[in-house]
Write a protein that binds this DNA or RNA. Structure first.
Lengths: 126, 126
DNA sequence: GACATATTGCAAATCATTTGTAATAATAAA
DNA sequence: TTTATTATTACAAATGATTTGCAATATGTC
């Protein structure tokens, strides 16, 4: 009897490498560009789906119709500041216990996660 | 010489009516369902684009690949709590001066807007 | 190395959204 | 009210992101 788990394959190595290289939320197109078509787009999508489910990567959307992914790294939980002009991204860390507690008090939802993004112009684009 | 501005047309009346009816962020598909194909999808898209630019409607994304729109009504600025199971949406209002001020202090970005969404399970789905 | 099966690449399908264009409808001017 | 002007529509087709089916391939186990 043969039982096998999740395999460490070329696409998985490469997608991880790409995410590590950028260390910010990137689109599938960006990953593909970085990997120069070494693997198929569908493999990138499938790998990201897997990484999401395994809590290796996190998915975000900034409102331009493409999902972005970044490694859940030593950075820990954080939010983003996105430049509406050049797309530059800055990380933001903040203490948000109060924020969460307020919402938990006001609502009867069982909160699992939250997303907070700021949009504006970076120093260069102002 | 003839100069005309923005016209008050059937699609615009209907899309406004649909948004008012739901009074929560809805997808284009939902608007179209409500309007029973009385107007073309492309008109819905174009109307929403216009309403967005005119600050009549606001666009949000909850991460499922479709944009959602809601009227910028007397509700004022608020955030959302989304049930990951049934999709139910609850509004949240909160004082966020502190939140914003902290970010503005830490960063050199000129912040224009922000989005904050909470995800979890509503009372019925827990 | 051989087997069992997880995973890939490829092609095609799907879904949301955008766009070009001729026909239509809304409004200003006559 | 009628006409002239042009913003806007419906329709069809295009685009872009993502998903899916499947035969071929690669990985890990024995």
């Amino acid at each position: 009897m043969t039982k096998i788990g999740i395999r460490y394959t070329k696409p998985r190595k490469l997608v991880f490498e790409a995410l590590a290289h950028y260390s910010k939320p990137v689109s599938v197109a960006e990953i593909n560009y970085y990997l120069k078509n070494k693997i198929d787009l569908s493999s990138i999508y499938r790998t990201l789906e897997l990484m999401k489910k395994s809590n290796i990567a996190e998915e975000t959307e900034f409102g331009d119709g493409k999902k972005r992914y970044e490694l859940i790294s030593e950075k820990g939980h954080h939010h983003h500041l996105i430049c509406e002009n050049c797309g530059d991204i800055e990380d933001i860390k903040m203490k948000e216990d109060e924020l969460l507690n307020k919402v938990k008090t006001k609502s009867k939802f069982a909160i699992k996660k939250h997303k907070l993004e700021f949009f504006g112009l970076c120093p260069n684009c102002q």
